[in-house]
Amino acid sequence: MTAVPADDLTARAHEASARIVADILSLVHHETGSDDLPGLAAGLDHLRELTVSRLGPPDREERHPGGEYGDTLTLTYTGTGPGHVALIGHYDTVWPTGTLAGWEPPAPDADGREKLGGPGIFDMKTGLIQGVWALALARESGAPLPTVTFLFNGDEEIGSLSSRPLIEELARRVDATLVLEPSAHGAVKTSRKGSGIFRITVTGVEAHAGLAPQDGASAITALSEFVVAAAKVAAPERGTTINTGLVQGGSATNVVAGRATASVDIRVTSRAEQDRVDRELDAVRVSDPRVRVEIDHAWNRPPMTLDAASAPLLALAREVAREQGRDELPDTAVGGASDANFVAALGRPVLCGMGAVGDGAHARTEFVYPDTVPAQTALVAGMLRRLADPLPGTPA
Rank of each mutant, 00 (worst) to 15 (best):
M1C: 07
V4K: 02
P5L: 06
A6D: 13
D7R: 15
L9E: 10
H14V: 12
A16G: 09
A18S: 13
I20Y: 13
I20S: 12
V21C: 07
L25M: 11
H29I: 00
E31R: 06
G39V: 06
L40H: 04
L50T: 11
L50R: 15
S53K: 15
L55I: 06
P57Q: 11
G66L: 12
L73D: 06
L75Y: 00
T76G: 11
L87I: 00
L87N: 03
I88Q: 13
H90C: 05
T93R: 07
G102E: 13
A110Q: 02
G117C: 11
P119C: 08
G120W: 05
V132A: 00
S141G: 13
G142W: 04
L145D: 14
P146K: 00
G154Y: 11
S162Y: 12
R164N: 08
L166M: 12
L166W: 15
A171K: 01
R172T: 13
P182T: 08
G186H: 00
G196R: 09
I200V: 14
V205A: 11
V205Y: 02
A207P: 15
H208V: 12
H208T: 10
P213H: 05
S218Y: 02
I220F: 07
G239H: 02
N243K: 15
V247H: 14
V256C: 07
R259V: 14
S263Q: 13
V264H: 05
S270A: 03
D278L: 14
A283R: 15
R292Q: 11
H297P: 04
N300T: 13
P302F: 10
A315M: 10
A317F: 10
A321F: 09
E323F: 03
D327Q: 12
D327S: 02
L329C: 01
D331V: 00
T332S: 10
G336S: 09
G336I: 02
G347C: 06
L351W: 09
G358W: 04
A361Q: 10
A361Y: 08
A363Y: 00
A363G: 10
R364E: 05
V368N: 06
V373G: 01
P374Q: 10
R385C: 12
L387A: 13
P392R: 09
A396E: 14
